[in-house]
Design a protein around this nucleic acid. Structure first.
Lengths: 156, 156
DNA sequence: AGATACTGTACCGTTTTAGTCCTATATATG
DNA sequence: CATATATAGGACTAAAACGGTACAGTATCT
């Protein structure tokens, strides 16, 4: 079925919620407003904060916010943040690890054609395209409305 | 990691082997030449024969062959044959089934943007692009060489 | 009739995933 | 400085998915 993890699915829910609210929100806050259980939200946000997608602030009044302008975050990034490099099979990755049939295996990394194709298409889907409002708004209205919601952005 | 099943991986190995050999090959034959265990090869071929990719002939001297000109088979078809419809999450599918958070879930099928993008890119990767020889040959040489190997094609 | 080869289904052990919890660390506030 | 708040990191467990195998059935060739 070419699935992504359920966690990745939830991540998009949470990220869209974050897109809607103030610039800095706590995990508990996001859990309450998204309906996703707190431990799960925590896990997701922690993962995302390790990349260039989210930025975290520790301590009282801390929380998570976007590390970059959210309009410029692609789904490829989100998926990679939660599931590692986009590689459809173990064989096709850059890593040396391969199946036991290496000698006879006539593939030798030819899934990379598929990987590249998928990677490219995911680069072109933006996180904000996942917002339900997206389908009712034209791209310009959308970005300006998001910009407005995020007046006090974190990312300097 | 956005994986496909291991079975799908093996399917490509076996299909490429079939691409190389005679038009009609038995499962045992393909198992021997590809190195994939017979029961597994059987399972894969059975699945593929349910679609328009392979065609089966029962009884002595039977086997499997392509149901259509193999140059026109896309990876999207192969993946769908083995894993069902290309849908990255349960939510996004056409089926009514959705997560438990339906009410609050702000997604409502917005993974479909991702699904469509992936589907489109997989439509453009052909099965023959997975052949190791593919990278050393230009498209025309390749299709003619495949056509030559498959002179007595099954598909009318 | 017998041998060959696909068809369908059911089963089980292994691996992966989802979800939870605990301890450590950082920061704001009184 | 003490305390409350919040993230960081990692370990652990129960559940689901997957891979692989086996078996009984059907079709076809010789």
């Amino acid at each position: 079925m070419l699935r992504v993890n359920k966690l990745t699915d939830y991540a998009v829910v949470v990220l869209c919620d974050l897109l809607r609210g103030r610039a800095l929100r706590s995990a508990a806050d996001l859990s309450a407003s998204s309906g996703v259980p707190l431990p799960t939200v925590s896990k997701i946000l922690k993962q995302l904060a390790r990349t260039e997608i989210l930025q975290s602030v520790r301590g009282a009044n801390g929380g998570y916010g976007f590390a970059r302008a959210p309009e410029r975050i692609s789904m490829a990034e989100v998926i990679e943040a939660l599931e590692g490099p986009i590689a459809v099979t173990g064989c096709a990755g850059d890593a040396g690890e391969c199946c036991e049939l290496t000698d006879q295996c006539p593939m030798n990394g030819h899934w990379s054609a598929v990987n590249v194709a998928i990677r490219r298409s995911l680069d072109e889907v933006r996180l904000i395209d996942m917002l339900p409002e997206a389908r009712f708004m034209d791209p310009e209205d959308l970005s300006s409305s998001i910009a407005a919601r995020h007046a006090p952005v974190l990312h300097a």
